[in-house]
């Protein structure tokens, strides 16, 4: 009988000490007069899945959108103080090109939003807007991205059909593939499964699990089970504050904070 003997929980932890890629320090963020985030400090580690949980309006999506400056789209949104550094560069510095940042930090949205184009064009979009015209290069990236998103086998025969004909789960994985095509290092996911049925959700979760070998993933979710299933670390937010940030095991098995305890055990409010 030959069974390996390491205690299971330790498998998730890499042998090397984890390396932080996103460093948030004392971040205060506001929409106009109403402050949305208060003094957030947290490090997000390389090639791990980090989950943000918390009730609606707790600021988890806001923080996520700070990481690739999606909040720039909202005029009244602004950072009051603090900093976010990705790979040791302050991303809110003046000399940062948002376009380059967003290529580095991809994003997948709550509602799957494939463009009403063919599947191929959806994936190729990111490269086309960068001016890539070489057909073979496009073909290659489209295939590798679709394979990366575990979608290739399902769609390879209908790459030129409209992406809107895909099922909800496939659409969401298409959006992930689309994000992969611009070769990001970090992928932000804003409630990627909230509109999906359990089977599609399971597929996306499998994908997240698979992707963490190569990417750093931050996922916002309302589904605590999902956070527990997919993430290595979990951050619990409440009313714009980071209440607890620990390994997922710690958060779900033995949270330090009584609010976290109440939230993860469903005794909130």
């Amino acid at each position: 009988m030959n069974v390996n003997f390491d205690i299971q929980g330790k498998q998730a932890e890499p042998s090397k000490p984890p390396k932080p890629v996103i460093k948030t320090k004392n971040l205060d963020f506001a929409y106009g007069d109403s402050q949305a985030l208060f003094n957030i400090s947290m490090d997000i580690f390389k090639k791990e899945v980090t989950a943000f949980i918390g009730p609606s309006g707790c600021g988890k999506s806001t923080l996520l959108r700070c990481f690739n400056r999606m909040n720039d789209l909202i005029d009244i949104a602004q950072i009051k103080s603090g900093s976010i550094r990705i790979s040791d560069i302050d991303i809110y510095n003046k000399d940062v090109d948002v376009i380059e940042l967003r290529k580095h930090v991809g994003m997948v949205f709550q509602k799957s939003n494939p463009f009403p184009k063919s599947i191929y064009e959806n994936i190729a979009y990111g490269m086309r807007i960068q001016g890539v015209k070489n057909r073979s290069e496009l073909d290659e990236t489209v295939e590798s991205s679709l394979r990366g998103a575990a979608l290739w086998d399902e769609v390879k025969d209908r790459l030129n059909k409209s992406a809107l004909g895909l099922s909800g789960g496939q659409q969401q994985r298409l959006c992930i593939a689309r994000a992969l095509a611009v070769k990001p290092k970090i992928i932000l996911m804003d409630e990627p499964c909230s509109a999906l049925d359990p089977v599609a959700t399971a597929k996306v979760e499998e994908l997240i699990h698979k992707l963490k070998k190569h990417y750093t993933i931050v996922v916002v979710t309302h589904n605590m089970q999902q956070a527990a299933r997919v993430s290595d670390r979990t951050a619990f937010f409440y009313l714009g504050r980071l209440v607890e940030y620990e390994t997922t095991e710690q958060i779900f098995m033995n949270p330090k904070n009584s609010k976290t305890e109440a939230y993860v055990s469903g005794r909130f409010g």
């Binding site: 003997f5 205690i7 299971q8 929980g9 089970q225 527990a228 299933r229 997922t248 779900f252 098995m253």
Partner: peptide
């Protein structure tokens, strides 16, 4: 002990 830890871990994380 390992088994019971793994059980509790699976119960709390995997539902």
């Amino acid at each position: 002990m390992e088994i019971s830890h793994a059980c509790i871990r699976y119960m709390s994380l995997r539902g």
